[in-house]
């Protein structure tokens, strides 16, 4: 199933690479990725879409939340925010 995640990320050296690297290392294929500025210059928003089942989605959300620079991960479709 297609899922869209919205990630708020601190603008630190290598932060984007770590998010992309996590997805690559755990075998999740990113279909689209958009990075946009937010009103806070220290924070960017990543909007990311991928294909996966529900179980994998749960893992992706949890693993992404372990990244230190990640402020928030949301899955708007299910409002699984944290």
């Amino acid at each position: 199933m297609n899922h869209t995640l919205s990630i708020l990320l601190q603008n630190e050296a290598g932060a984007l690479v770590r998010v992309a690297g996590l997805f690559a290392a755990r075998g999740y294929n990113i279909d689209t990725l958009t990075v946009t500025a937010t009103h806070d210059p220290a924070v960017s928003r990543l909007t990311l879409s991928l294909q996966c089942d529900e179980a994998a989605l749960g893992q992706i959300l949890q693993q992404t939340r372990k990244l230190v620079d990640v402020l928030q991960v949301a899955h708007p479709a299910t409002a699984l925010a944290a």
């Binding site: 050296a13 290598g14 690479v17 770590r18 690297g21 290392a25 230190v68």
Partner: peptide
């Protein structure tokens, strides 16, 4: 930062 970012808790 790239290399260790893939294997450390944080860099």
């Amino acid at each position: 930062s790239n290399i260790m970012g893939a294997c450390a808790k944080h860099v």
